[in-house]
Computed example of a mutant assay.
Amino acid sequence: MAAKKGLEVGIVGLGKFGSALAERLVEMKVTVIGLDRSESRVGAMRDILEHVYHADATDKAALRQLGFGDLTHAVVSSGHSLEASVLATLNLKELGVPQVWCKAISEEHEKILRKLGADFVVFPEQYVAKQIAHHLAVPGLVHYFPLGSGVALQEVIVEKWAGSTLRDLNLTNRFHLQVVGIKRPDEKDYSYIPKADQVLNVGDMLLIIGAEDRLDRIES
């Protein structure tokens, strides 16, 4: 998926999560402005980021001087320092950054961040744990994308369904699930809105949307 043209993202905190996020965004042709209080972390990112600074995000004047107030998106990933995370989030919102996304380390931390106006809060460890749990518990599961309100988008690999068509499976009426994409083993990209009479083969990957509890019932 192509990134939004001209998108610039500020990342506060260049630890494991922040640096990995920065690298991926750069790969997607997004301009990243990195900031960290650690000189060694800043130094480690100089070959990756064109704009990376040794500064303290708890200092609002420093953020303003480095242009963070002109960004539309900023991510606060300040490791395990709750105080630094909270102050950085407060400063970014006071500078008028429309979208401030934050890494949280506890539910209490999340509550504080949301009260300060954080637009999105993520628990990386919990997210990874949920992915691994679904991989272990759901045969054939490749990825699990929670969408909220009990709805998920799930990729499954065809095994038992080989030789059947989507019409034969009748997932919409039987489970209230919808196949929105299909990808053959030799194909790189999905074909979306597949035809009902398309015959499935072993190894085909289906992209299915529906309620989580209903997705758990299917055996592909």
Rank of each mutant, 00 (worst) to 15 (best):
D204E: 06
E8A: 04
M45K: 11
T172M: 15
F123K: 10
D168L: 12
V121A: 04
S149C: 14
A20D: 02
E94N: 04
F68W: 12
I33F: 02
L90V: 06
E107W: 07
K103Y: 15
K60E: 00
E39L: 13
R167V: 00
V138H: 15
Q126W: 05
A137H: 07
N91L: 00
A55R: 01
I218M: 08
D119K: 00
E94I: 03
V179C: 15
L7K: 01
G79E: 02
Q154G: 10
G140A: 15
F17T: 01
V75N: 06
V122I: 12
H73P: 00
I11F: 08
G117A: 10
L200R: 14
A104P: 14
L71R: 03
V52C: 00
P124F: 13
Y144V: 11
V75M: 05
L113D: 06
V75Q: 02
M45F: 06
I112P: 15
R64E: 00
D36E: 10
L90H: 05
K183T: 12
L90K: 03
K183E: 06
I218C: 14
N201Y: 11
A62W: 00
P185M: 13
S106T: 14
S85Q: 05
L7A: 08
D59I: 01
V30T: 13
R24H: 12
R41H: 04
Q99A: 13
V26G: 06
H54S: 09
C102I: 10
K195E: 11
T58S: 05
L21F: 01
P185N: 15
N173Y: 15
K130H: 12
P185Y: 13
V151A: 08
E110D: 10
T89P: 04
N170M: 10
A74T: 01
V26E: 11
A196N: 14
T172R: 04
H143M: 08
F120L: 07
A22D: 01
H80V: 10
V26P: 02
V122N: 02
S78R: 00
D47K: 13
A84P: 06
G181K: 05
P139I: 05
G34P: 14
K130S: 03
G181E: 05
K29Y: 02
L207H: 09
V122H: 06
L113F: 02
